[in-house]
Amino acid sequence: MENSIFLTILYAVISVIFITVYGLFLNGVVIKIVARVHGRFGPPVWQPFLDIIKNNAKRTMISHGIMYFLGPVFRITGGIGTYLFIPAIYGSVMFSNLSFSGDLLLVVYFIFFGQLGMALGAGESGHPYSAIGVSRGLSQMTAFEFPFALSIVSLVIQYQTLSISAIVAAQQGGILNWTMITNPLATLAGVIALLGMNMHSPFDIVIAPQEIPIGPPTEYHSAFLGMLQTNRAIFNAAKLILFMNIFFGGATNIFLLILKTFLIYMISVVIGVSFPRFRTEQSIRFFLKYPLLIGILSVVISIFRQGV
């Protein structure tokens, strides 16, 4: 029994290291791709690592208070936790993480953990831009969570389970079994919500560099910022893996995982480089219009299919 606990911890550590490295490289590759789209060379793919090392290497830091200090800790706990509650690779013991402690609902709610902590930390910095950023971020978050929730409900109707492993299991055996094919509307609603979650253009209202320089992390720097950047990589990858699991058939090995999450991320990236930014209320209205309708439609259709 003790052995198994240690093994679980060991696997979790390996899994977290993998996701960190992968997430940072993913960011690097995407920056590179965006640069190529702009006709630039862009920084090397390992630039995110350098940035994090540099930030941690800063010799001075300032703290605005205990909550400010804990903000990044909350944030990264949220990121790693979210990842650890998702089974990353179907059938793999090492990458099933700690998914036995809760189901899809847990993951969806755990996403908020880090955001809340971070928002509190940013709030204590006393910077008005931080507060404005959080206000915008939360406002938008409510809006895209609604279609996302509906798409999850639609999945639950379809698969009659909330367990991510079970949802992945149900999608095995070829692309035709993927939710993307079997429940395209739910996938569509979910993916549009993902655009909001990833906060690329046109939904980058939180960071909005032109108005509120960077939003919540305005006052974060040095090791704090390094931690936030690390989390950004982990959290991003975790979300992608979640989406891969529930909509795109999951992954049976690491290469499939990398390929699929990369492609899913590209959706955000491509849309991000092609569109200008929304205003906050436009973004809210956007999510509560077509994505919401698609979500409702997918639930209704699932109910009917269930009935048949």
Binding site: A35, R40, G42, P44, P213, T218
Partner: peptide, 12 residues
Amino acid sequence: DMYRYGIAPRPT
């Protein structure tokens, strides 16, 4: 393209 040298603007 200053980014290729690892130079990037920061807002704060």
